[in-house]
């Protein structure tokens, strides 16, 4: 579905991605884990067209899409839920959701909008309860649900999630990941970027570990979760060993 090879992205003279290759097959959940500044968000922003790659290839459904605009990519079936949700705080929940469908033609909109809204409200009943409330007044977890719901309004085949657990209490993180799992079961392919490696690996089939703009490890989630390096660096296991060194 998504196939990326040797992607290089720069901010001015700073090279943020140094040749990243990865892929997501249809029906998978794939996790990208790594510390702050490892290039995770840059990678997602480059895939979704927010940033333009310097070189390398991004293929979506077999089509080269490197450098395409985010709008065009949404139409092709990709939705990007950015880090920090980026909601319109002064607009209502309902209005925020409707904005997620803005790329669709007006006829299509009329026909399916209610249907899609119902679907989102089904997944996130709390959004229905709060549909008239301003997004800015929602709790962190509800805001994240709204951000994902808005992404789902474009009926994406591939959903990109950037740090959905950010700033949320562990119990809320669990809810969010349960929802992501449900979206996946209903047929959405998911690429998720997370600092919370434990949560991400618990739902993903495979994962990549980014470090200073490079992939240094890849494998199935169970392989990565057992990997001593991952455990030390991202799962908080074995600190004692590090001190001994």
């Amino acid at each position: 579905m998504l196939r990326i090879s040797s992607l290089i992205t720069c901010y001015g003279r700073i090279v943020a991605l140094r040749g990243v290759s990865m892929h997501v097959d249809e029906g998978e959940i794939v996790a990208i884990i790594g510390a702050n500044g490892s290039g995770k968000t840059t990678l997602l922003d480059t895939i979704s067209g927010v940033l333009t790659p310097k070189s390398g290839s991004i293929k979506l459904f077999g089509q080269e899409v490197g450098g395409w605009s985010p709008e065009k990519l949404v139409r092709l079936g990709m939705a990007h839920v950015p880090q920090g949700r980026r909601l319109f705080a002064d607009l209502s929940v309902y209005e925020n959701l409707i904005l997620g469908a803005y790329r669709r033609s007006s006829r299509d909109k009329r026909q399916h909008l209610t249907e899609d809204l119902d679907r989102i409200y089904d997944i996130f009943p709390v959004l229905k309860e709060r549909s008239d409330q301003k997004a800015g007044t929602l709790s962190g977890g509800e805001q994240q649900m709204l951000a994902i719901g808005r992404g789902m309004m474009s009926r994406p085949k591939l959903l990109l999630l950037d740090e959905p657990s950010m700033g949320l209490a562990p119990i809320v993180v669990r809810d969010i990941f349960k929802i992501i799992g449900n979206l996946h079961k209903q047929g959405t392919t998911v690429l998720i970027v997370e600092q919370n490696a434990k949560a991400a690996l618990s739902i993903a089939r495979r994962g990549y570990v980014l470090e200073t703009g490079r992939v240094v490890l890849e494998g199935t989630s169970s392989e990565l979760a057992k990997n001593p390096e991952v455990r030390r660096a991202y799962l908080g296991k074995g600190y004692k060993h590090i001190i001994e060194e």
């Binding site: 196939r3 990243v20 290759s21 892929h23 470090e211 992939v215 240094v216 490890l217």
Partner: peptide
């Protein structure tokens, strides 16, 4: 070939490091 490229790059990065 995609899988090989991904793995090759990751292994080369690690071996170098």
């Amino acid at each position: 070939e995609q899988l090989q490229l991904e793995r090759l790059q990751a292994r080369v990065n690690r071996a170098y490091r």
